[in-house]
Design a protein around this nucleic acid. Structure first.
Lengths: 339, 339
DNA sequence: CTGTTAGCGCGTTCAG
DNA sequence: CTGAACGCGCTAACAG
């Protein structure tokens, strides 16, 4: 693998000159530039970014840490990040934590060792340890999707509380009075905020909250399936389910199917974060839709602004609006509830 | 950001010693090791992998280049790669080409510049340029999913020809005689091989192939939608559709829905590569199922074997079997076809 | 417009 | 068991 010196020798110039040609920096006469360029081609020279980054103390690389690459929401976010990073000449290293704090810790460490210029992080959960870790970093961190209280970082997220509120209000407006919620872990802000929105809508309508109708769990299909089973065993049984994310919704729908309950005739279901409509043949679920791509985009922009130094000084929290999309899974409720 | 020297100074040892502690190499007395370790903690020292890799000429990093991260098939493959790479102490950089040769070229170049130890590549298409590029590389390349003829690389892929053959035989056994195929680009081996399997099944059954029933396109929903429109305009019209990948199938189902045709009553549909069943509430499509995770796993293993030098010398082509899963989308064909 | 010098942070000789 | 010296490949300063 040839080095910059090999190229220099072949072109009969100094390594510096080759460097100038590669990086379009400084003055190089056209004739020597041509000589250098042919030398590069002849040798098949590929600049070594490790050396370059070591020297410059900048890698032009961002780390993106997501919690579940198999959930189509995150690839959509990742594309938003990628596209904007790329336009600015940055590369992105994508890491998947599987919602595991241990994996998250490992990946963050690797990213630091690789000296990425900044990190976009979807925190597996909010913990004091993470908060302290963020505090100790010198490179900018942008939190994605989930709050971590008083962290020294910008945050870009959807309006979970409002989205949940809208969904539950929608159910209430259809006549539902027995609404249950399938949520995620209690130490994840999106799960908490969505339950908060749920509660606000209930309270506003003067509906009483029943503890057994608030199911905390994980953001997985299995968790949604199990929780739905528990909900069906309560009496009275809820007439509508609010799943706090798409995987929970899929699990719930499976469980309902398994129990022989029709949706929406016998149970209405609403959810956060559709499976991107591209993946669904016949859109069915009523959802609060978050702008995944845009979330990635804004987060990357924020990070790049910090890196170029022309970002604001205080840390920002950007809350993106969430859009309600009403579909069949919540239809016909009035009739059902009346029965 | 402290360096190995800062740690050394604080622990009153030489940088060499710190290095030995970090890498568990060579002998270090327990007392000095302890001193070094506390120094590391105190300073929050994070080893610089750029420098390390520059020195070692090894990055312990693999590049994984896929064609479409929004297709759930690839995240599944990626996890297979990640998991096995990680177990061997390797990191993975994930890149997304969007089926674009230009993007692919850029990413491959970046990976080389970052001096990854090996590359797993899903080639956007088979071209002489790519073949030559692979030939010129000194690091091992493993081709994933798609053949690139006579390339100097191992290949791990599913048995496209056989899967297609099985699917079409299945349709024929149900009584279908007018079967169309929605395929991808003509310069992508999976598209070609699946059409070949389709042809073999037709020929074996003595069915004539009609050119207008072989639709080449892209691996996208839009392409599936358009091609289905064209197929519905032929006369006679096909009674069954074979979509060569999942996105094409989704596009086809949408188009059929739009045209008011019921599946399977009025049109049977079969496809390659399900949306991973986790994403589907009610599995519906008859599919040839490829072991995505295992594909990633085997490919990573092969690459790691090459890197550790104990792989075989000749380049291998590993062809994973494909499993037929029959579901509702191809039911009741006999009745329909008879009409 | 071009070349010389020096050092980014680390690991590996080779001496003690 | 520990340390000193060297160089991985590159670029920024400073000459000329």
């Amino acid at each position: 693998m040839p080095t910059i010196r090999d190229v220099a020798k072949r072109a009969r110039v100094a390594p510096t000159t080759v460097s100038r040609v590669i990086n379009h920096s400084g003055y190089v006469s056209n004739t020597t530039r041509a000589r250098v360029e042919t030398a590069i081609d002849d040798l098949g020279y590929v600049p070594n970014r490790l050396a370059r980054s070591l020297r410059l103390k900048r890698t032009h690389t961002l780390g993106l840490v997501v919690t579940d690459i198999t959930n189509p929401f995150w690839p959509a976010v990742a594309r938003g990040v990628e596209d904007t990073a790329h336009e600015a000449g940055f590369n992105v290293i994508l890491c998947n934590t599987d919602e595991s704090e241990a994996k998250q810790e490992r990946y963050l460490d690797v990213l630091l060792q690789k000296r990425v210029d900044g990190i976009l992080l979807v925190p597996a959960c909010a913990s004091a340890a993470l908060d302290e870790w963020i505090r100790n970093q010198t490179i900018p961190i942008v939190l994605l999707d989930r709050r971590v209280d008083c962290a020294k970082a910008d945050t870009v997220r959807g309006d979970s509380e409002d989205g949940a509120y809208q969904l539950v209000r929608h159910l209430i407006s259809l006549g539902h009075e027995r609404i249950a919620v399938l949520s995620g872990p209690q130490n994840v802000s999106t799960a908490v905020d969505r339950v908060a929105g749920y509660r606000r809508a209930l309270a506003e309508a003067g509906l009483e909250e029943r503890a057994e109708w608030v199911q905390w769990g994980r953001f997985s299909q299995a968790s949604g399936y199990e929780a739905t089973g528990r909900l069906l065993a309560t009496s009275p049984r809820p007439s509508a389910l609010f799943a706090v994310n798409n995987f929970l919704a899929i699990g719930a729908l499976r469980a309902l199917r398994h129990a022989g309950l029709r949706v929406p005739e016998e149970m209405s279901v609403v959810s956060f974060d559709d499976l991107t409509s591209e993946l669904v043949i016949e859109p069915f679920l009523t959802v609060a839709h978050q702008p995944a791509y845009k979330m990635g985009q804004r987060a990357a922009e924020l990070l790049l602004d910090r890196l170029s130094g022309d970002g604001p000084n205080e840390y920002q929290e950007i809350v993106l609006p969430v859009k309600l999309t009403i579909r069949r899974s919540s239809e016909q409720a009035r009739a059902t509830v009346a029965s």
